[in-house]
Design a protein around this nucleic acid. Structure first.
Length: 858
RNA sequence: GCGGGCGUGAUGGAAUGGUAGACAUACCGGACUUAAAAUCCGGAGGCCGUAGGCCGUGGGGGUUCAAGUCCCCCCGCCCGCACCA
């Protein structure tokens, strides 16, 4: 039979129009059905979507369409994470206004997303740079201020002394500014913070209830919060009148192995000492010649400066030298440590460098105290305490308790020598950014009254449009009039806060805003409470810590301010893998080429790439994350135009497990498209069948029910690749039946095929719709319920058991499902293969796992 | 440096501790065609081979009747590290 090829260029826009006209995906907050909120992380409007977006949004759309078919009232919204640095970089480079650039990008990406046929409620769309959105965010800030959640303190930034601007960590390359190349300096500024540390324990405990989150993400968050039980210990100085040095440790059991003290370069005492110690001042200045990031601190070579001061060991008659060391972080604990080189690698590296003593105090179980020593590798495992006076022989845990009791009961200057303390690694969230394209912090600074909130009736504080990027730095700060205002308290002239908020603030509550996107308040608490938590949140694993932790914090803070009453924003979380692609370059990684500019020859190691334009050979580089700068992105427009949205969706959903990275190949797309055409050919054949009432217990009917049952479970578990494999198998089964050309089966074939269409409708909605209509139906498959699976058809009467001999599969046996263990054993022992293996002997062991396997041990 | 993850045929991958390689892609052979494309049918982890074996899930060790899966060590790659989003 000759059929026309399926033409997605015609059918896809047509069905998108029908869905829009019938308002199929607009969600009513008052719909009485059970709710289901599915959300994909909203995109940054970079200009074009890439296949990574297609993957993310295709997954969410499958869930949304599936849940709709299962009878839920589904909320599936979309918006734009629209503030941030790229708009300012574009402004500087191309002389375009960040606002215009951003909204143009949004328009382009919106139209690309629409061409994918996503079942989104576009009525709820917003961008975080919409005044209406950041107006509400400013109200949230003021609420937080009132509640004591927002406050000001000093903290460090990366300062580019040439460009006179604050740099983001990614703009600091090897300690130098990315544009100027100047050595970056650390500079202290007074900035706004959110008190996320007040919620440390609650954020930690909340993880336990998140049973639909990946374990790895919960573990990462747990480690990030970093609760640790230890002690604060005070060390008295020798020969000086400085206050005792207070340190935090979790290893008080190793106190007898202490060989030095180390202060952070930012420690107040360091500052004090540096004032009249030129050498120390120079050392501190050197430490500040790199970026502020933890990576920069921890990967730098360990260096120290001996202050010449000494402290007294609290339990022994000896003193310890006090160093300033570049690897001690001021943000953690007290900014000072005692170093026990034998049992901490960083301390050991440091001690070896400065020739400090190394005394082991924990003896591994299998080691001998007489010859146990530490050279270049610290011992951090379990063992018994030794070389430690009254602690000798104890376990680490007992020693920790004993020493804690001792130090708590010892006095130093009228206070305990040490106290037990719980410490968190989690730091407060600094939200001030010295940039234009962000949400203005609604604060007015008055010389007399200090920083004051902008009165609510004066909100929003809008970003001025008339700004320039001719000079680096914050355009808000140098704007001639915007800054000037009057004090809401004393009415004298005052200035506006010119810092804007971290863009993570924008994305920490957008999920709540979607529940009432037009509200004059940040949320409508009733709507928020009825929709939240998001039932299924889907996004990249790169957001596993920061974005998700900040959102969890915001839910708590917003609840505290009465905007909602849920603590955990995301009930189910799925972290998808990235889409990666080969990157092609000139051999020096200076000029990069897009895959569409190239032609390829050969296979495997002989594979070569040439520029289509002039035949010049280019280097095939690493497979890496798609990025604009390396030009290895694949724009889905090309695929959608050539093969259609369904093919693009189908391809990104098939093959790879969704949590894993995928390498994009065009060959895969062609293969996926062949399946689209194959379904189209099948529907012609099915539609042409004469109607017959074939028996319902037909094998194909059972296969269809089984497939549907398992596809359902796979979609629920977001195992789209397995659902796709099931759909292939069912398609093969329908094809096989059709090719038998037996009209008596036509009812079963048609029934199975319609189930197949329902199963693939969430993934390839246009094709399913077209086929459904082709079969003569007048309704839409997008608004039909998921077919009901007949449980009775799911089980088999007989099962095939594999038979192992000594753990290797040697035969199989077909037995009744009801067969008893004894019957199976007898049947197995009677088998020729088993008889042969036994050779007259009795088996040493006979393991029968009912319904699974039999293992005969000879 | 620290924290988290991943590693299975030519390729993407499948496998509640229970038949390793489902399903798909690429490939090979056949049918159809003047030819090609498309389509349909068949083949296929490697090695030896008549039967039938042996080896095989990054490498090494271990637990178990049974290990891709659990434990220990190592190698490689990826993500995050608080101002990229």
């Amino acid at each position: 039979m000759q059929t026309e090829r399926y033409n997605p260029q015609i059918t896809e826009p047509n069905w998108q129009k029908v869905w829009t006209e019938r308002d199929l995906f607009t969600t009513d907050n008052n719909d009485p059905r059970e709710k289901y909120y599915v959300l994909e992380m909203f995109p940054y409007p970079s200009g074009r979507i890439h296949v990574g977006h297609v993957r993310n949004y295709a997954m969410g759309d499958v869930v949304a369409r599936f849940k709709r078919a299962k009878g839920f009232n589904v909320l599936h919204p979309m918006g734009w994470d629209a503030f941030g640095m790229p708009a300012e970089n574009a402004a500087m480079k191309n002389k375009v206004h960040p606002k215009g650039w951003t909204y143009d990008n949004i328009a382009a990406m919106r139209s690309q997303l629409k061409s994918m046929g996503l079942s989104l409620d576009w009525q709820r769309e917003f961008a975080t740079c919409d005044v209406a959105y950041y107006h509400q965010q400013q109200k949230l800030f003021l609420d937080f201020l009132k509640e004591g959640i927002a406050y000001r303190k000093k903290s460090k930034v990366n300062w580019d002394p040439v460009d006179q601007t604050v740099l983001a960590n990614e703009q600091v390359i090897d300690g130098k500014g990315w544009r100027s190349g100047a050595d970056v300096e650390q500079r202290e500024l007074t900035q706004w913070f959110f008190k996320i540390s007040d919620y440390s324990d609650d954020l930690l405990n909340g993880l336990e209830g998140l049973d639909r989150w990946p374990d790895k993400v919960r573990l990462m968050q747990k480690n990030w919060i970093g609760k640790s039980e230890g002690m604060s210990v005070r060390f008295a100085f020798e020969d000086t009148d400085h206050d005792p040095l207070e340190i935090f440790t979790t290893r008080q059991d190793t106190l007898f192995g202490a060989s030095f003290m180390a202060l952070s370069p930012d420690h107040p005492l360091t500052q004090q000492l540096a004032a009249d110690n030129a050498g120390l001042a120079a050392f501190v200045a050197e430490c500040r010649k790199h970026g502020t990031s933890v990576v920069a601190v921890e990967t730098a070579e360990k260096q120290g400066f001996d202050t010449g001061l000494r402290v007294k060991h609290p339990l022994q008659d000896r003193t310890l030298p006090v160093y300033v060391a570049n690897f001690v972080l001021m943000d953690y604990g007290t900014g000072a440590i005692f170093g026990c080189p034998a049992h901490d690698q960083r301390d050991l590296d440091f001690a070896n460098k400065y020739k400090l003593s190394v005394t082991p105090v924990v003896l591994p179980t299998d080691a001998d105290a007489a010859d146990f020593s530490i050279a270049t590798e610290a011992y951090t495992g379990p063992g018994k305490i030794f070389n430690s006076d009254f602690l000798d022989g104890m376990t680490i845990e007992d020693a920790k308790q004993t020493i804690a009791e001792r130090l708590e009961s010892t006095q130093l200057n009228g206070e305990p020598q040490g106290t037990r303390q719980i410490n968190y690694r989690l730091r407060d969230w600094g939200i001030s950014r010295q940039r234009y394209w962000g949400c203005p912090i609604p604060i007015i600074h008055c010389d007399d009254c200090g920083p004051l909130p902008v009165p609510e009736e004066q909100l929003p504080v809008e970003l001025p449009d008339d700004i320039d990027f001719d000079t680096p730095g914050n355009p808000l700060d140098r704007h001639v009039t915007w800054k000037q205002t009057t004090c809401p308290n004393c009415s004298k002239s005052a200035t506006r806060e010119t810092d804007t908020m971290d863009t993570f603030v924008d994305s920490s509550w957008y999920f709540a805003r979607f529940t009432a996107p037009k509200s004059d308040n940040p949320t409508e608490p009733k709507a928020a409470d009825s929709w939240l938590p998001v039932n299924q949140y889907i996004g990249g694993v790169e957001h596993a810590i920061l974005h998700l932790l900040y959102s969890r914090f915001f839910a708590r803070a917003m609840s505290q301010c009465g905007h909602m009453s849920i603590d955990e924003p995301f009930e189910g979380l799925f972290t998808q893998g990235m889409v990666v692609h080969e990157a092609y370059h000139d051999g020096q990684e200076r000029t990069w080429y897009s895959p569409i500019e190239l032609r390829f020859e050969g296979e495997g190691a002989d594979r070569k790439a040439f520029l289509i334009e002039n035949g010049q050979e280019v280097t095939i580089g690493k497979i890496e994350k798609m990025s604009k700068s390396k030009r290895n992105t694949v724009d889905p427009d090309d695929i959608i135009k050539t093969y259609g949205a369904d093919t693009a969706r189908w391809f990104v959903l098939s093959d790879s497990p969704p949590e894993r990275d995928v390498i994009w190949t065009d060959a895969g797309v062609e293969g996926a498209h062949r399946f689209v055409q194959r379904v189209w050919r099948l529907v012609q054949e099915v539609a042409a069948l004469e109607d017959s009432k074939s028996p319902h217990d037909h094998a194909l009917t059972a296969a269809a029910h089984k497939a549907l049952h398992s596809i359902e479970a796979d979609i629920e578990g977001l195992r789209f690749n397995r659902a796709v494999a099931q759909i292939y198998e069912l398609t093969n089964a329908v094809s096989a039946q059709l090719s038998k050309n037996n009209n008596a089966d036509s009812g079963a074939v048609r029934n199975a095929f319609e189930m197949l269409l329902h199963a693939m409708a969430p993934m390839m909605p246009h094709l399913a719709e077209e086929c459904w209509t082709h079969l003569g139906h007048s309704d839409l498959i997008a608004s039909r319920p998921w077919p009901k699976v007949d449980e009775a058809l799911l089980s088999e009467d007989t099962i095939i058991l594999p038979i192992q001999i000594n753990g290797k599969r040697r035969a199989e046996i077909s037995v009744s499902k009801e067969a008893s263990k004894q019957e199976v054993e007898e049947a197995v022992l009677a088998m020729p293969a088993v008889q042969k293996a036994l050779d007259g002997a009795t088996p040493k062991k006979l393991i029968v796992v009912p319904g699974r396997i039999v293992n005969v041990v000879v």
